[in-house]
Amino acid sequence: MFGMGFTEILLIAIVAILFLGPDKLPDAMVSIAKFIKGAKKAIGDAKNAIDDEVKISELKEEAMGYKAKLDAATDELQGFKNINPMNSLNDELDSIKSSLTEIPKATPVEPKQDESAVTKRKDEGDR
């Protein structure tokens, strides 16, 4: 215990009995035990707090890694944002419309000739 041997602990116990006496010794032992228990608890709490901080820093690093991957994917997808299959169809439709509006003018049709009146000759025999 604390790097002390049995003879050292026995020597401390004898000195404590001489200084404190048999009446105050039990109360002193309880106080010392409470102090040691409180020190162990404080050391344990400090250790847990340090472990939590280490875990938080690891989680923060991991989150930053995920954020970097997400930013890279977002940048990659940004190039595909303006791709729309309807755009190419609209472009083709516009080109067809423009070609239809450029219909060459029709040449004028020759004026209609006067109809000749065809008269049936009456046979002379019918008369």
Rank of each mutant, 00 (worst) to 15 (best):
A72P: 04
P104K: 11
P85Y: 02
M64T: 15
M64C: 06
M29P: 00
E76W: 01
K69W: 02
G38H: 12
K69G: 05
D45W: 03
E102Y: 01
P108T: 07
A49D: 14
Y66C: 06
K40Q: 06
I17K: 14
L70H: 05
D126R: 01
V109Q: 10
E53D: 15
L18S: 07
N84V: 03
I36F: 05
K24C: 04
D52W: 08
K60I: 05
K24F: 06
G5M: 01
M64G: 07
D45Y: 05
R121E: 05
A68H: 10
A68L: 13
S88Q: 08
G3M: 08
F6T: 07
F6R: 05
I36Y: 05
E62H: 12
L18A: 14
K34A: 09
D123T: 02
L11C: 01
P22E: 10
G3F: 14
I12T: 15
A13S: 08
S57R: 13
D91T: 13
M1P: 00
E61F: 10
G79K: 15
K47L: 15
A117P: 02
D27G: 06
T74P: 00
P22R: 14
K41E: 11
I17A: 14
T7W: 00
N84D: 09
P104D: 13
A117V: 14
A68M: 14
K55M: 14
K24V: 04
A63G: 04
R127A: 05
D52R: 13
S99K: 08
N90Y: 06
L100Q: 12
T101F: 01
P104A: 15
K40F: 02
L11A: 08
S99N: 10
K55I: 13
T119R: 08
V54E: 13
K55S: 15
V30T: 04
I83P: 01
L59K: 10
G5C: 02
V109C: 04
G65A: 12
E110C: 09
D52C: 04
E92C: 03
D123R: 08
E110T: 13
V118M: 03
G5W: 00
G79A: 15
V54C: 08
I56P: 02
K112W: 06
P22K: 12
A73Y: 03
D27R: 07
I17E: 12
A28W: 12
L25W: 00
M29I: 14
L93S: 07
I32T: 11
L59V: 02
I12L: 15
I83G: 02
N90V: 04
A68F: 10
E53R: 14
K120G: 03
E110Q: 11
K34D: 09
D123E: 08
K122V: 13
D94M: 13
A106M: 07
L18G: 03
E115T: 05
N82F: 09
A33S: 13
K97T: 04
K97H: 04
L59Y: 06
P111M: 12
T119Y: 12
